[in-house]
Simulated scan of single mutants.
Amino acid sequence: MSQTHDPIDQHWADLLSPGRRQLLRAGGLAAAGGLIGAPAFAAAPAPSPAAIAAHTGKSPWGYATATEPTPRPLAVRPGEEHGLPDRPRAYTDIKSYHAHIYFDEDSYEKAVRIRQWTAERFAVELGNWNAEPRGPHVTPSFYFGFGTDLQPLILPWLQLNSLGLTILVHPNTDDPRADHLHYALWVNRSQPVNAYGMKKPNLAAGEPAVEQIYPNTRPTVAIERS
């Protein structure tokens, strides 16, 4: 048998497991295909619930989940709780903004630089350095808050100075869940945000209607202009 292989066939052979490669060498693709169709690969009958319980314990979900009803979830999009809204929201409902910069063990040095640049140039409320997921954010991050007066400046600045990191910019209104999930802007790619459980402020308990921003940085560097 010739040892010369077609390059395409060799490519696919290299993608297969070592065991399948041995089959290819011994009898070719036809032999491998025959083994795949052999009775040894036939699906075994599903074990009964009693057999499962006998070997692995009792499922905490019981054994009737497949017959449970599957109703439509409640609407969570802002303004659609009772159908489409009749009019737009006022843009003045936005009282401030948050920027969340995400990083990991390979990109944290870029986040450090953005954090330093921000504190040097803008009067913002700079939050802690979160080396682990915190709140609705599923990766390490840091955040800074800023007023609506800075939005026309900070948003394009972040677009040009993200260093390739994922950045969430969201407004602060009276609906934190919508702020994070539906009113959000992303610089570069987006990523999951676990904000479905966020609630509106409890005004009866004295919580402010909208999260407040208190700048804690003192800019010392002029913003670069062309």
Rank of each mutant, 00 (worst) to 15 (best):
W129H: 08
T4R: 15
E211K: 15
T166C: 09
S226A: 10
T67G: 04
V138S: 03
G135Y: 07
A50C: 07
Y214N: 11
Q151A: 07
R21G: 02
P219F: 04
A66R: 11
G135N: 06
P78E: 12
A205S: 12
P49W: 07
N194D: 15
W61L: 14
D86K: 15
T92I: 11
Y196G: 13
L160N: 13
E120M: 14
L24V: 10
A43P: 06
L15D: 02
S17V: 05
A32H: 10
M1T: 09
D9S: 13
E132K: 14
A40R: 08
L168Q: 15
P219R: 14
T217L: 06
D6E: 09
R21Y: 01
E125T: 07
L163G: 13
T70P: 03
N188Q: 01
S190D: 14
M198V: 04
P7C: 13
R134K: 06
Q151T: 03
E125Y: 05
I8N: 11
I94W: 01
A53W: 09
S162D: 08
K58Q: 15
A184L: 07
Q191N: 11
P171R: 06
P39C: 06
P7H: 10
D6N: 02
V221D: 11
F144V: 01
T4S: 15
T65S: 06
H100W: 00
T92H: 07
H82C: 14
K110M: 09
A184V: 06
I213A: 01
T166L: 03
A51H: 07
G79C: 07
A119M: 05
E207D: 08
E81Y: 04
A178C: 09
T4L: 12
T92C: 08
L15A: 12
L160S: 10
F142W: 07
F103I: 11
H137M: 00
F41I: 08
L163R: 08
L15N: 01
H98C: 05
E68V: 12
K200D: 08
A119Q: 10
A66H: 08
S107G: 02
W129P: 00
G83T: 01
Q3E: 13
I8M: 15
G79F: 02
Y91K: 15
P47Y: 02
A222R: 10
T92D: 12
R115Y: 03
F103Y: 14
P78S: 12
N172D: 04
Y214C: 05
F146S: 04
T173F: 02
A53K: 14
H5F: 13
I52G: 01
R20D: 14
A123W: 00
L74Q: 15
N130R: 05
N128A: 10
D104P: 00
I223P: 00
A13N: 04
Q159V: 06
P219W: 04
P152R: 01
A40P: 11
P192W: 04
G57M: 07
D106M: 09
A195W: 00
A178F: 07
E120Y: 04
G27Q: 11
A44F: 03
G57K: 09
R113D: 14
D149W: 12
A50P: 03
A42M: 05
L203P: 01
R189L: 07
A66I: 03
I94T: 05
I213N: 09
R77C: 12
N130T: 02
F146N: 02
T70C: 13
G79E: 10
K200G: 11
W117E: 14
Y91V: 15
R21E: 05
S141Q: 12
T65M: 09
P136E: 04
T65F: 10
R25A: 15
A44I: 00
A64K: 11
A209Q: 10
R21K: 05
